[in-house]
Write a protein that binds this DNA or RNA. Structure first.
Length: 316
DNA sequence: GACACGTGGAT
DNA sequence: TATCCAAGTGT
């Protein structure tokens, strides 16, 4: 940081810090007594998933598995089952693997630094930096989709950040990070909160923004995005089929025979045990046999399901 | 670097 | 109804 714009930056830091004081949501993983494990679990659950859907599942997990060793002592299938409908169930699998690694390689304690956190399954550059910062007060360059959008508008004058994180964005984030440890943690948290609550992707609430006076995007007259985001396909995809299969496995008390996935229960001559609704939903997709096979094989390969007594079940 | 990977609320 | 998009990671 050059001395020339240090003063400018200070105003930015100060304005956002005060806004955060007055407007931050009371989230349980922000409580002072929340453990590093609780923060790690929250960060993984929050990947690509809104806060409101994470809250009840996070509370259930914290009550069920208060420490990494508690989770590590159970089958990975339990983690997947109690992941519920959060989505991307491989995250549950990796969180379980992380718990095992923490128990076996870190004496049961969540690592307190970026490098070791990055070595845990399911923990990438964002999550490693976030846990180091929010659980251990480290000065880290935290860059998530909220912070990227805030930087894009406030500093770069663009409606949206690039489709993928660029080196230039990382350099900018590093340049904006306060030198002071404590201030850096608050800067990360407040920029993220601003992006989530005010500087949103659609319909940003600029009238409520504490730093609108310094916003390059507003000053430029709110130019539209330079590209159109490509939406994620869903209907008819393998992902949809995998999701429907997982819904069946989560509800099943025991292994589900492969035939049950391939044809309607009525044609089998017996009723499924408690999996009627999700099984009916799967069959309603009416997916091609090869697509169903691809989905089942994929789930087995990913470790989200295993074969037992000729049927599929969550890993036990 | 492009893609695959779940889910459901909001617009 | 169709599309967007939410505290990303791994291959």
């Amino acid at each position: 940081m050059t001395p020339k714009n240090t003063g400018h930056l200070w105003l930015l830091h100060e304005a956002l810090d005060q806004w955060f004081d007055a407007n931050a949501r009371d989230l349980p993983w922000r409580e002072p007594d929340c453990s590093p494990w609780g923060i790690l679990v929250s960060e993984v659950m929050l990947q690509q998933t809104p806060v409101v859907r994470v809250l009840p599942v996070w509370r259930d997990w914290m009550e069920r598995w208060p420490t990494p060793a508690d989770l590590a002592g159970h089958p990975s299938g339990d983690a997947v089952r109690h992941w519920g409908r959060l989505g991307y169930p491989r995250r549950a699998l990796r969180l379980h693997a992380a718990a095992v690694a923490i128990r076996d390689q870190h004496k049961g304690a969540v690592p307190d630094n970026y490098a070791e956190l990055l070595g845990l399954p399911g923990v990438g550059s964002y999550t490693a930096a976030a846990v180091a910062a929010f659980a251990f007060g480290r000065r880290e360059t935290v860059v998530d989709t909220n912070i990227r959008r805030v930087h894009a508008r406030l500093i770069s004058g663009q409606a949206l950040p690039a489709p993928a994180l660029t080196a230039a964005e990382m350099r900018l984030a590093e340049a904006l990070l306060p030198e002071d440890r404590g201030l850096s943690v608050r800067w990360n948290a407040s920029a993220m909160e601003l992006g989530a609550m005010v500087c949103t992707a659609r319909n940003p609430k600029c009238v409520d923004c504490p730093v609108r006076a310094g916003c390059a995007w507003l000053a430029a007259g709110e130019p539209p995005p330079s590209y159109t985001p490509k939406g994620q396909a869903w209907h008819g995809t393998d992902r949809q089929v995998r999701g429907a299969v997982m819904a069946v496995l989560r509800e099943a008390a025991g292994p589900v025979p492969r035939e049950m996935f391939e044809q309607a229960p009525a044609d089998l001559g017996f009723a499924p045990s408690g999996v009627g609704v999700p099984l009916a939903a799967l069959h309603r997709l009416n997916s091609a046999p090869e697509q169903l096979e691809r989905a089942l094989d994929g789930l087995l390969k990913d470790g989200l399901a295993e074969m037992h007594d000729g049927g599929l079940r969550l890993p036990a």
